[in-house]
Design a protein around this nucleic acid. Structure first.
Lengths: 201, 201
DNA sequence: AGCCGTTGGCTAACTGTGCTAGCTTTATGA
DNA sequence: TCATAAAGCTAGCACAGTTAGCCAACGGCT
């Protein structure tokens, strides 16, 4: 029995690719073993359990997404940066639905969890984007959460085929970006100084 | 062996409650059977399969959510209606995480699927909310998708414990509502007529 | 009341999947 | 060269979902 030359990274990467192809929910140890040319129990030499595998896939996905978004926003600012970041995230999710599903399905177990660390790193490019809008430091967390909610929501619904009708999804996405851009700029017809002015009811 | 007096509705409702308690992912036929006081195979007299059960739970959840949001927005308009709808949805998700998870995990199989129908009904109160803002009819779908994305995103991240740090989540939520409200009003510092003006790049 | 078909419960048993135990072979390096 | 660790294998357990098939309880007849 010749060796397959596997390693933890190889197995995780193969698992991520497989998840992208057949869906994260349908990913099984048996299929992954077949994919890498090995019997099922052999996988446990590289990965502790299916849960461990899933977590590693999630961490990998978050790292890759952060890298893609960081690269896309490099050298841009304001609305340009916002659009670039949003599009990069959306492209990633559409190209890697299995990887992204892994990041949704799994919760970090604690602040030391590699998933939590990778998730934090994913926030950095968004923080950079927000620096292009003049937002009070105290509101930074709120703005970050808002960005995350908005694009996470759109991406998951689209990836899940949740948008019915035939209206163009690209167009809806651009519309959403503009809505957020307008919302982030302070001036509003109400004359308030921005979203922060209506804090906690 | 005395009868337990079950019915499909009873089983589905019990499943939904159990999912809220222990998490949708951990819901098993065995536990549900135990909960309703019956042996596992007996459940199959009321439900075709676990997938069937899950779908029924999802449809139930969507119906309940639509009802809650509809009731909350009754008699309100504009920003008041927006806030009421957003809060009602968020409250529902926090109170019924298992039910909500069911609606995320499952895709409707087609436009005839009860889940798709219930999802459509959930859109109605949001449509009503949007009538309080003057949005071009052509942009209605975009606006609806935007609303869905925003609040779905926030709700899932919060329900999954995705917001790290200690910053107050309630406050972030109100901030998000205001961001959307501002974005939906046309006037913006750029002088454009609203998000629609930047259609498809 | 007493029959009888339908319904809803049960036990037994099959399948597929995650995982462990324990053996064997390959590669490595003192 | 040969001892040791790593990486593969087969066999097999446990558990969840599911099906088959049996039997008791209920409801509508006459």
């Amino acid at each position: 029995m010749p060796r397959a030359g596997l390693g933890t990274d190889t197995v995780v990467a193969a698992g991520a690719d497989l998840a992208d192809e057949i869906g994260f929910a349908g990913l099984s140890m048996g299929q992954l073993a077949q994919r890498v040319g090995v019997r099922t129990p052999s996988l446990y030499k590289h990965v502790a359990s299916q849960d461990d595998l899933n977590r590693r896939i999630a961490a990998l996905a978050l790292t890759e997404a952060a890298q893609a978004i960081g690269a896309a926003t490099q050298g841009r600012a304001g609305r340009d940066a916002l659009r670039a970041a949003a599009r990069a995230l959306r492209d990633f999710v559409l190209a890697h639905p299995g990887r992204y599903a892994a990041t949704i399905a799994l919760e970090p177990t604690g602040p030391e969890d590699p998933i939590a660390l990778a998730a934090t790193r994913l926030l950095e490019p968004f923080t950079a984007v927000l620096r292009g809008y003049d937002i009070a430091p105290a509101d930074m967390t709120h703005a970050l959460r808002a960005l995350r909610s908005v694009f996470h929501g759109f991406a998951t619904i689209e990836a899940g085929g949740g948008f019915q009708w035939s209206t163009d999804t690209d167009e809806s996405f651009e519309w959403l970006i503009d809505l957020v851009d307008h919302g982030l700029r302070h001036g509003s017809p109400t004359g308030s100084a921005g979203p922060a002015s209506r804090r906690s009811s």
